[in-house]
Simulated assay, not measured.
Amino acid sequence: MRAERLTPYARLPRAYHDLDVLHSTVDAFGRAHWLLREQLKPSGPYDAVIVTVADGGSYPTQLSSVLARFPRIDSLPDGGFVVADTRSCGGDDQVQVFDALGRPSWTFRVGDGIEHLLTDESGDLWVGYFDEGVFGDPLSAPGARRWSSTGAPLWEYRPPPGTDWIADCYALNVDRDVTWVYPYTRFPLVEVRGSGPLHARTTQVRGASGVAVRRERVAFFGGYRGRRDQLTLATLTDTSVDTTGTVRLTHPDGTPLPPRRRVVSRGPRLYIQEEPRIEWLVFEIGDS
């Protein structure tokens, strides 16, 4: 099988390597962010720093009184950030919004079991949930939802004809004007565009952890049964996503990827991160 090498994308500056990496992501504008704190683990609210890497430089944003024990982060268009706790079993607000100076502004709840948290260019939050949330919390039950940055519910997944309800949101891609949902159990690729009806397409790919889309071209990353480093290439038709080939993704030097890594899906790009979580690599679907 042909190999496709990832490209280095963003790296945490060395000055911050002695801090704990709590979470990291790449936002809707292509900026990489790391949420960091001192290695001493406090029992209550803690101070943290978000380090942003973009355009060849980096800058920190100090956060105060962070509550999340298992955080997910993303940026907001006004320079602020959203920090959400993956778990919310007790019903408490789990999402904190911080302004551009790192001050906590307000909180709200979006449901237990956050697997994916991605903001779009307008600052809305797209959330995909894993099975414990879907089957344990009414807010998470749709499997994928959209919220405003003030906590107003804007949209929730309702299965289009021929598909099931979401049991686990395996992959979520938030692009400029379209969002793609790839859910368990049947693994359709569902197109969410504005307020129009959902467009579901069948796929033969099972268990992927990331999906990239550029016009009619699609790439799924990962899968079951030894396919964790496999990239499945496909094309969109009106009703299906048809596989055209497979390649193996590798490090930039050609060495294999480890089994444990994180994936952020943004339009035609797959951003991939592994331990110790100080660097992002990228694969992008080209124009041809």
Rank of each mutant, 00 (worst) to 15 (best):
V213G: 05
T235E: 14
V178P: 09
Y271Q: 00
D112T: 02
D242I: 07
G207H: 12
L6D: 06
I278E: 07
G128L: 01
G245E: 12
R248N: 13
V218P: 09
R201S: 01
V21H: 03
G111W: 04
G79I: 06
E275N: 02
G286E: 15
R103I: 10
Q204K: 13
Y16C: 01
R262N: 05
G111P: 10
G162W: 08
S88D: 13
L154D: 08
E121Q: 13
R5F: 03
T150I: 09
E132N: 08
V190P: 14
H17E: 11
E216M: 01
Y157C: 01
V49S: 09
L40I: 13
A15I: 02
S122I: 02
R260M: 06
F108S: 11
E274S: 10
S43E: 08
Q204D: 15
S288G: 15
P268D: 06
G267H: 05
Y9S: 02
F81S: 13
D93K: 10
V174S: 10
Y182T: 11
V264E: 03
F70Q: 02
D74Y: 06
F81P: 08
L236F: 01
Y46L: 06
R227Y: 07
F221A: 11
V192Y: 14
A68V: 05
L76H: 06
R31G: 09
Q94V: 02
W155I: 08
G30A: 05
S122K: 04
S149N: 15
R145V: 11
T52M: 06
R72S: 10
S58T: 03
P268T: 00
